[in-house]
Amino acid sequence: MRQIVLDTETTGLNPRNGDRVIEIGCVELIDRKLTGNNFHEYINPERDSDPRALEVHGLTTEFLSDKPKFAEVAGRLSEYLQGAELIIHNASFDMGFLDAEYEKLNLPTLTSQVSNVIDTLATAKEIHPGKRNSLDALCDRYGISNSHRVLHGALLDSELLADVYLAMSRGQNSFLIEEEESSNSSAASTNIDQPIASVIVLSATEQELDAHGQLLSGLDKAVRGTCIWNS
């Protein structure tokens, strides 16, 4: 299975207010193994970031001014993500921004281009109800070092989330094995507990009884006594 762990950085919180994507980071997993085939782009949003967002990601307008616009990145991003299952923390946020970017270009939304989206925030809330489930909190919970994470960065956050996702879903394989073993055990038990079919008893004929008697008599003579079958 091909899965892509994805994260974005944006100029603000709401694409409907004109906020744009400024960074995309993706990490590829195939059969739950990191491949190193990653995707990373900084994007010129053609606008300034909200000051509060700038404090989070640190990507200044000056730094982004010579980066490609989303229209220049959209095709390569679609090709990279095509048909994959996406893994995103708080997926509605990132997908909302990316879908809005594609809609601006009159292209099919990203949601329509991928096979499925797993929201690790929703998953974490189910596994750890009532607890903090931010990416930093999950890194702490699963023993994943994020000490090098001073500012938010899309590629770095995707790499951390990949580790978190693998740790958080590690029990799935063993659960499936246990379930299968339980199923096989139940099947075996069912087979054992099934009633034995009626046994057909065939009685010996008189001729067979006479022949058997003669054989035993011959044995008696041979041992000069009584054989055990006549005792």
Rank of each mutant, 00 (worst) to 15 (best):
G96R: 02
L155Q: 05
T11N: 09
G225Y: 11
K125H: 08
I192K: 08
L29A: 02
N106P: 00
L216P: 04
T60P: 07
A84G: 05
D50K: 12
K69I: 10
E181T: 11
A100G: 03
G130A: 15
A100K: 06
P51W: 13
L59Y: 02
S183T: 14
P51F: 12
A222C: 01
Q82V: 05
M95N: 09
G225A: 13
I87L: 09
R141S: 04
G153H: 09
I200C: 02
Q172L: 14
M1L: 10
T8H: 02
S189R: 11
E9V: 02
I192W: 02
S49C: 11
I24Q: 04
G75D: 15
V73M: 07
F97K: 03
S158N: 02
I127P: 02
E85H: 05
E208H: 00
E85R: 09
K131R: 15
E126I: 13
E23F: 07
Q113I: 04
S169Y: 04
G83S: 15
D157Y: 12
L219G: 01
E41F: 01
L86W: 05
A74N: 07
T190M: 13
E46M: 07
F175P: 00
A187Y: 08
S189H: 09
A53V: 05
A71C: 11
E179I: 06
N146P: 03
Q82N: 10
F93H: 09
A154E: 03
A124R: 14
R132E: 12
S169T: 15
R224D: 14
R170I: 00
D94F: 04
L105D: 06
E46P: 00
K221C: 09
